[in-house]
Amino acid sequence: KTTNMPERPFDSENARKKQHAEQSNNELDENSPTNNNEQSGDEEDDDENQIKGNEEEDYQEDDDEETPDFTDDEYGSEFTDDYLCPELMAERPQEHESLNNVIIVDNLPKVDPAKLEKLKEVISKVYNKFGVCRNVYYPLDKDGKTKGYGFFEFQNEQMALEAVKQTDGYRLDKNHTFSVTLMSEFERLTQVPSEATDIGNLLSWLTEPDAVDQFAVQSDDPKKTMIYSNALSQPILLEERSKWTETDFVWSPKGTYLASFHEKGIALWGGKEFRQVQRFAHTGGVQHIDFSPCERYLVTTSARPGNSEAFIIWDVITGQKKRSFPVEQGSPYFK
């Protein structure tokens, strides 16, 4: 049996004071350094856990990236040499340095390995006087014998040009005369001319049994050129073409070629079917031409104001330009 004791008037007040004191102590404990350290430690633990979580996510994302397939032949094809080897490519020689500074010397003595150093010593005395020769190369055959030519790289283009000028045609001894050229001209020297088209006998008209000549007639309306064989009974038409020439035509002295005039130059025709044999580019409109008596050379003139090549002398066989001359004043003329 439980008996409820009557409440004392001062017991409630004492209880309130005790409760207030306990609450104040709890607040002090919460603000104490020790409690703060415990909270900071908890926060640091949370931060570390978050960082570890992020690292795990990043690592997982890296694993998800596609691994390059190195077995693919096209892998890396988009990478340039400058990208892969920037320092090495920065030191590469420029075209003007690697070509214009290098000369090729042909007709050197062919010597065996025992005499190679002596050859280098002799040749170096010839070329060291033109400047600093940075590199020298003598190609060798399978037996170690020189092939009769060499490459010489000078410090600059002026040295190389002077070496070509002074030693091209230089006679080392009675059996060896130098042939020297710039490396930049190597492509031109090694170009093999295309196989010429067989145009037949250029003098086929001389084999005509009756020994008749040929002559050409030009009409302006319409623009036609006709070539006839001057047969005994009446002329026989051999060839007729429209717009074969723009202004005029000229026979060569021996009748080997028929020259037609065009805005861009002169064309030569010959053979039994009058195919194009050669052409000479002389822009500006050619007014006059003349052949040498042997038909080996051709002179074309285009006397336009400011034309630095009013006269040009051509090699008929090769089509190469031999020389050119300007016109100071007046009209050009042949004498």
Rank of each mutant, 00 (worst) to 15 (best):
P6L: 03
R8L: 07
N14L: 10
K18F: 08
A21F: 14
E27Y: 09
D29K: 10
N31I: 00
P33N: 11
N35V: 03
N37I: 02
Q39D: 15
Q39W: 09
D45A: 13
N54Y: 08
N54S: 09
E57G: 11
Y59N: 14
D62I: 02
P68M: 07
F70N: 08
D72Y: 07
S77K: 14
S77I: 09
F79T: 10
T80F: 02
D82G: 12
Y83Q: 06
C85Y: 10
R92K: 13
P93G: 04
E97D: 11
I104M: 14
D106S: 14
L108T: 10
L119C: 01
V122L: 02
Y127N: 04
G131A: 02
G131S: 06
V136E: 01
D141L: 03
G144V: 06
K145D: 05
T146V: 07
T146A: 03
G148P: 07
F152L: 15
F154L: 06
V164F: 06
D168W: 00
R171E: 15
T177D: 08
V180C: 02
T181F: 15
F186T: 08
R188H: 03
T190K: 12
S194Q: 09
I199Q: 04
G200F: 01
V212I: 11
D213I: 03
V217R: 05
S219N: 13
D221Q: 12
Y228N: 09
Y228F: 15
Q234C: 14
Q234E: 11
P253F: 05
G265A: 05
I266R: 06
A267S: 14
L268P: 12
G271L: 03
R275T: 01
H288Y: 11
Y297G: 01
E309Q: 13
F311H: 13
I312N: 00
I313F: 10
P326F: 04
Q329Y: 03
S331W: 12
